[in-house]
Design a protein around this nucleic acid. Structure first.
Lengths: 153, 153
DNA sequence: GCTGAAAGAATGCAACT
DNA sequence: AGTTGCATTCTTTCAGC
């Protein structure tokens, strides 16, 4: 997949506001509605655009505490961890990683007791956990764009 | 803000597909288009829905490597780190956290050299870094919903 | 919360640059 | 790879209930 500067504008605009009409999007990137519609369709088909989602704030939903949990797994218990994560309310992401941890888990919970409960379950499953509570997020959701060498060719 | 089961359905559907028409969304949650439009507007005004964004895959964009960098800051260099993160291509998120690290940074880069370059700059700024390269993400983008005790009252 | 009509937008398809 | 113009259908919006 080769991306030209117009594609980048499209990606930037749609990451900022996924509900733009094709007409308005075309206006912003200097293309007619049919042309921009076709480009968006191609970006979707190429797997560059995976979908569109509402950005939801955890705090007003009653989940004021966000944390990253570093999980160490001495055995091969990843599958168990994943099944647990899918079911457990408040677990948002699981990343299998290199380094000191096997996995990094992101959670959003209603209070520290809920976090404690999750950690308790992890420990009981035999995982070693290190918890990092998020105090603030000075940078979030920066637009994802290709490195320069990917553009236009 | 009090949320009833219909609001939860709306949040679930819009997190899944932010480009649903209000008509189709209304169909899915058993409400007329004007009614669902009004509810969505209230969720936006209440800050529950922050916006709508395209989900973009980093790999086809030429950024196949995702990593979390744990940053330790002996001094009070957070502002410097944030300014750096805003400018540096590939840095997606910065979270200030409790625990062993001052910050957790999420990056998506084109190759290990680019990751190495970012780490080099961080170290040169006086930060101590631990890097976790993401091998896979077995769980991502689980829908964010309120804990049970937040519903309906 | 609903309906219903008017205005606007999306889609598909021409013919053309 | 793009444009305009047009027809059809869907969506939004606003009134009135």
């Amino acid at each position: 997949m080769k991306l030209d500067p117009t594609d980048l504008k499209i990606l930037t605009e749609l990451q900022q506001d996924a509900r733009l009409s094709m007409r308005e999007l075309g206006r912003r990137v200097d293309l007619s509605a049919p042309a921009v519609t076709e480009r968006v369709r191609r970006l979707e088909d190429a797997g560059v655009i995976l979908g569109y989602g509402a950005r939801v704030a955890p705090e007003p939903l009653g989940r004021p505490i966000t944390a990253f949990i570093g999980v160490q797994d001495s055995g091969q218990r990843d599958p168990q961890l994943v099944r647990w994560s899918e079911k457990r309310d408040g677990v948002l992401e699981v990343h299998s990683v290199t380094g000191g941890n096997s996995c990094i888990i992101k959670v959003a919970v209603e209070h520290v007791q809920a976090l404690d409960a999750l950690l308790g379950e992890l420990i009981q499953m035999g995982f070693t956990c290190s918890t990092s509570i998020v105090l603030s997020t000075p940078l979030h959701g920066k637009k994802l764009l290709p490195p320069r060498e990917m553009i236009k060719g």
